[in-house]
Amino acid sequence: MLAELKHTLGRMRGQMIGWSVGLALYGLVMISFYDSIAGMENFQQFIEAYPEQMQAFFKSMTELNTPKGYLGTYYFSYMTLIIGILAISAGAGLLVSDEEKGILDLVLAHPVSRTALFCGRLLGLVVALVVILTVSWLSWLIPSGSTGLKLTWIEFLRPFLPLFAVLLLFGTLALLLSMLLPSGRIAGMISGALLVADFLLLGLANSNQDLKSIVKFTPLYYYQGGDAVTGLNWGWLGGLLAVSVLFALLAWLLFRRRDIRVGGERSWRLPSLRAALRRS
């Protein structure tokens, strides 16, 4: 398992560095704007002049001149989408990408169990996400002392935990779908579409009561975003992590049973469908 963990981290090294540097720069730039925005006179009236639907969609923007609202609007509201791209692409390709390239055939011919391979790679994804989020957290925390964004290290840390949980959930969802669908490409595409759909649904549900009953069944409803600055909802966080674990377990069960391909994508088993149509 250790060899696979090392190998996965080695392969994700470029992504880890790129995403960490990008998010760190973003954090440094955004925190430097906080004092100017928080100090703007009549800012609240300016925000209230926005259409109600828009205010509802970006819920936290009405508190943009507070640390919670600022962090929520400029970071935690859409980092689920931004870093979600990485989590989904890494999750969808965690095992299937090597299988489609034909590499897994050789790797699994070595004395490594499927469970060890699965756990090593999944742990690699978790570590990569933790490293990226830690660097991002530090990029807000370290310069915060010289700005008006006065939060303790733990207050800065709290919203990163639900963000990690959501990223892990969509990463493991992509992993699970990659075990069920013919290719990692399709698994990534569907997971990404679900993430974007959930993001839009959540925003629209803020102004539409009918959608509220639906959005309760989606993961982002249980994502606190910037609100977690003032306190964590441990039940929601635990729920998101529990679903991630469930997705990972199901993916592991499927991976243990599957025939490893020599390469290429799996088929949709259309021949049986065609045969059924012919029979009818």
Binding site: G102, I103, V112
Partner: peptide, 27 residues
């Protein structure tokens, strides 16, 4: 058991020695 697949695929970006060391790690 040592295995040579019919269609050998390796990490394209690795050097030969790194690829062999990774496989040796697995052993």
């Amino acid at each position: 058991t040592g295995y040579l697949p019919g269609e050998l695929s390796l990490e394209a970006n690795s050097k030969v020695e790194a690829a062999l060391r990774y496989l040796n790690d697995l052993r």
